[in-house]
Nucleic acid binder design. Structure first.
Lengths: 406, 406
DNA sequence: GGAAGTAAGTTCAATCTGTTTACTTATTCG
DNA sequence: CGAATAAGTAAACAGATTGAACTTACTTCC
């Protein structure tokens, strides 16, 4: 037999059925209120197939029936919605300065949040603390009568495609950590999907996946915080993430923006992070790592030095966004991370630069929408929860209901 | 009914059968010489299913049986190969200085080539000439007794996801051209798959798709010629290309490498193309657009000015490759385009820079393989042919054989 | 040389899936 | 109120994969 080669996807009748159940579920998720007839035309299935599939999804607690639609000359259809009261998803983010927890309904609605200041420490200690927090978290009343579909954890570092091991997280000082294996002993009773991902990639995924109606073809999330990273999600079918072999895709902080510029902690010169990042701003303005950057900076926004530093950082961000536009060409760019709270002194130069230069290659025809999230505290954690939902819907057998449902 | 939303993929039994036929065909394609039993374990299908599917692929002329395998204690398996004598693929490239034609067997083997000098002219004139060339080309004896699966055309410009219209090709001076519609009247008898794509993306696809054995997870093709562009192909299942909404993904020529640098023809300053591209080298060294760059430069390789220019361009290319490594993180980088013929004076600085800086973020553990193609004349055209094959195998019903076959 | 063992490939009834066709239900329009 | 229209359901049908039994073909061992 010849050497190793990848599996090709093939399937049996069971696979086909699960595929169709997933497709129906995704259709309802993306367009709440569709009827069985709508689904049949959308998904290219017959009414009969859709009918039986929907019935089984109703029994499993994934869907619920809604109001009768307006009739257009015949029997009115029955609206279908995700059953937001039966399952929930857990998302967490391990950040440099704290742990963040989120519980989401399948629609993406946030049910519970928790933001716990927590210092950088070892993987084991962090896993123990996060496990304890999650255990308490799941006892909150709004989650008591729901079933968990799984747990997703977002981390500030590079994760290879298999998603099992965190290769490097320079800002945490970690490398080669199998974080989910460390977490599991602390949550022995938890079942369902377990996964981890880079924080910017998780955020990108969530921003694309938890959206109804017309979804953009692709979405780039740029996370500007202590470091700077990005994630690209593509939404043709189920959202896919561009990861790169070593999980390095989107490590835009270390692209060279200024040949021969300042030395970066990575050893190269002129990296984007030397111009725009939490640590470079701190270094320039002499702000200690332990202090909150925004709090220390807010009273100093009149100082010429601060204004100048923020403007230069903003312009560099604009240039970075333009380069990303040209290399990735996403349909939509979302800017988040703690630095967005620095306000217009930082953001305006970035937006202005990007606006002024983005259409040079294509004329004025189309522009890319660029959205800034002011408070992105829970965006990555919610994105990790979104990944759990996607995995539950697509990759594995749909779980049976255990809590009573209609 | 709620607003527009995308189709979700669902399917019937026919879809499942085609999926399995495709999976089997891909398995044989990637690992020539597999037996039915190998396929069954690889593709997770039963021997019975594989047996009938293989029989139908043999009848259709896609596969042929080979020698008996060595026995390992039982009945030996019968090797299966792609039938390279039944179908062929046509690929063409419209370049700034000429038209290139390729005919490939399903294995990727090049059957015929043709390189025709052709000046930049209007889309209509080009389509007429290409059509005539293709017609003559298909009458060559090696193609006489084969069936064509379709035609793919590679072009130096941006093409949006639907692939139907060439948005902009600055080096040709074209914009918003439906090239395949212009070509069709000149080849009325041609059937099968018709497609066009950007030349770097087509090349990336071909380099990944026409490979047997262990294929890299992703491959980035960088095309350095008159302009500079790139294409990223990912090979988890069928190779997918990163295109971007406006087809701008991979337009690396216009990423800013040197803030405040020279003005680029796109209107911005310090674009990569101002440092490394056919036109910037011509401008710096005063070489006319109509002359062949390599021919004019070869006798001048001793001049300090030439040496300096090529070294600077090479260094910029190295920096660009590093930035691509960080934003895309492909498993393999392939460097092609006419500038690779400039030799070590240009290439060495690029490779040296890339080698020296690539592992700063991940330690010395893994390195990305970087391969240079010296003669990339037919790479893009062959890539377009590869796309035709992929489309024929995956997207549509497998055609019936018309020429007699075993 | 022959019998036993092992593995590849085939045959065919059984099972499971989506489809087709006919039917029931529920609303609008005249 | 009846005809028309459209949503949803039920039962027979068509088809693809499966599983078990079978045939084929080679190796190994006595």
């Amino acid at each position: 037999m010849p050497g190793s080669y990848q599996n090709q996807k093939a399937g049996d009748l069971n696979f086909l059925k699960r595929l169709n159940l997933s497709a129906i579920l995704e259709t309802v998720r993306r367009a709440p209120g569709v009827t069985r007839a709508d689904i049949a035309t959308q998904a290219q299935l017959t009414k009969a197939t859709v009918g039986t599939a929907v019935q089984s999804l109703l029994n499993q607690g994934w869907l619920k029936e809604g109001e009768l639609q307006k009739s257009s000359g015949g029997r009115p259809g029955r609206a279908l919605h995700l059953n937001d009261d039966h399952y929930y998803l857990l998302g967490a983010e391990v950040g440099v300065h704290g742990l963040r927890l989120v519980a989401c309904a399948p629609s993406g609605q946030v049910l519970e949040t928790q933001h716990e200041p927590f210092p950088c420490t070892t993987p084991d200690t962090t896993a123990a603390s996060l496990g304890e927090l999650l255990r308490q978290f799941t006892h909150r009343t709004s989650l008591q009568h729901r079933d968990s579909l799984g747990i997703g954890v977002a981390l500030p570092g590079t994760i290879a495609t298999d998603e099992a091991v965190l290769r490097r997280a320079p800002n945490l000082g970690w490398h080669d950590v199998r974080f989910m294996e460390l977490l599991r002993p602390h949550l022995p009773e938890a079942t369902g999907v377990w996964l981890m991902d880079n924080e910017a990639k998780a955020a990108a995924f969530g921003e694309l996946y938890f959206r109804t109606g017309a979804i953009p073809e692709s979405l780039l999330y740029v996370s500007a915080g202590t470091g700077i990273g990005s994630g690209l999600a593509e939404g043709r079918h189920l959202p896919l993430l561009t990861r790169g072999v070593q999980g390095l895709a989107g490590e835009i902080g270390h692209t060279v923006l200024q040949p021969g510029g300042l030395y970066c902690h990575c050893g190269n010169r002129g990296c984007a992070e030397t111009l725009v990042s939490g640590w470079s701003i701190r270094a320039t303005l002499g702000i200690d790592e332990k202090d909150d950057l925004i709090n220390r900076l807010t009273p100093r926004l009149q100082e010429p030095m601060v204004v100048h530093t923020l403007r230069r950082a903003g312009e560099a961000l604009g240039m970075l966004l333009l380069n990303l536009h040209h290399t990735q060409n996403p349909a939509e760019i979302v800017l988040g991370g703690s630095l967005t709270r620095l306000g217009p002194l930082f953001l305006d130069p970035a937006l202005t630069y990007f606006e002024a230069h983005q259409h040079r290659l294509l004329g004025t025809a189309q522009r890319v929408s660029l959205r800034v999230i002011e408070d992105s505290t829970f965006v990555a954690a919610r994105g990790a929860a979104a990944q759990v939902l996607a995995r539950a819907i697509h990759d594995q057998a749909l779980p049976q209901a255990t809590h009573g449902s209609s």
